[in-house]
């Protein structure tokens, strides 16, 4: 399974939710870590490169939207999905504006969650491929220029 090595961080202050999500995602082949607050999430994200984080909107020490911003420097390419019990268009727009890649309403349906995770991880892979293609193209152009200028001197 291509997703077997993907790492996911689940951030929620509700232990039942953390454990339920961890169990569900582990069964699907993901490596899952959990954090019960924003500070722990930042600490874990600084030491481990996660592919994706599931973030509760309300955390004991900060809002999930604040955490979105604070997580960005730790792993810029990590995909972030906000999970909230308070459905509102304002919240959703705010989360997306603060850098969320997806938004889910509690109670989260497992098939919907898994679909969104797979979709986000696929986008992450596509972005990586695009970046690599751009780098390869840059290197190719640069070396042609270097070799061209060298040839011109002979």
């Amino acid at each position: 399974m291509s997703q077997s090595k993907k790492r996911i961080l689940v951030v929620d202050d509700d232990e039942d939710i953390r454990e339920t999500l961890k169990s569900l995602l582990t069964k699907k082949g993901y490596i899952v870590d959990t954090a019960n607050d924003g500070a722990t999430a930042i600490q874990k994200s600084e030491s481990t490169p996660y592919n994706l984080a599931l973030l509760d909107v309300v955390l004991p020490d900060m809002e999930g939207t604040q955490l979105l911003v604070k997580l960005k420097p730790t792993t810029p390419r990590m995909r972030k999905i906000m999970v909230t019990g308070h459905a509102s268009l304002d919240n959703a727009i705010r989360a997306v504006n603060m850098g969320a890649d997806g938004y889910l309403i509690k109670p989260v349906s497992p098939p919907e969650l898994l679909r969104m995770i797979e979709d986000q991880l696929k986008r992450q892979e596509d972005d990586g491929r695009l970046t690599q293609e751009k780098i390869t193209s840059f290197i190719e152009t640069r070396i042609k220029m270097l070799e061209g200028s060298e040839g011109g001197k002979e």
Partner: peptide, 27 residues
Amino acid sequence: VFGPGADLILDYVAKKLENPRKRIVRK
């Protein structure tokens, strides 16, 4: 780190090793 771009870099380094006296001028 570079995936498909690595071949280009390695080839350039190898050429430079084989002929280090060629000065390659940066544009």
